[in-house]
């Protein structure tokens, strides 16, 4: 698990010094208990209905990390998104699958990719069918309204 320790070092350094890519997105990121379980707080990207709201991410590293991808989930019942299962917080993202994962990526990359997913939902592979359908119909009003309804309540 020396890799996780190295990443911990890098992440604390990045968050402290304020990297221009990550500081936009990440509010906080720290390990829970040991280095295999992490929690990250990410900021909703501007220009999306998620703007102005923070979302909690749970990351857990498998035994084989970095050979296998980390398991990443949003907090359950907190994330209305076309590619996120609302009830479990499960994320549908190709780089988090074993076929598409590369060991060269680290947790910061993963969080960045998720931030990008918030920005550009992929309605063709939905875990939340309602929002995906609204997006397919290109009904931006309904999209914003629905997301805000969930987030604000």
């Amino acid at each position: 698990m020396s890799r996780a320790a190295k990443e911990y070092k890098t992440i604390t350094k990045v968050l402290k010094e304020g990297d221009e890519v990550y500081s936009q997105l990440i509010v906080g990121m720290e390990p829970k208990e040991d280095l295999t379980r992490w929690e990250a707080l990410i900021r909703g990207p501007s220009g999306t209905p998620y703007e102005g709201c923070n979302f909690r991410l749970h990351l857990s590293l498998p035994q084989e990390y970095p050979m296998s991808p980390p398991y990443v989930k949003f907090e359950p019942y907190a994330m209305p998104h076309a590619n996120v299962d609302f009830r479990t917080g499960e994320i549908c993202l190709d780089i988090l699958t074993k076929q598409h994962w590369s060991p060269a990526w680290d947790l910061l990359h993963v969080v960045q990719a998720i931030g990008q997913l918030l920005d550009e939902p992929v309605s063709s592979s939905p875990l939340n069918v309602d929002i995906a359908n609204i997006l397919k119909a290109n009904d931006m009003n309904a999209y914003y309204g629905l997301v805000h309804y969930y987030i604000k309540s």
């Binding site: 020396s2 890799r3 060991p103």
Partner: peptide, 8 residues
């Protein structure tokens, strides 16, 4: 110069 996988 550290390996990208293990970073060590």
């Amino acid at each position: 110069f550290a390996c990208v996988v293990c970073k060590t």
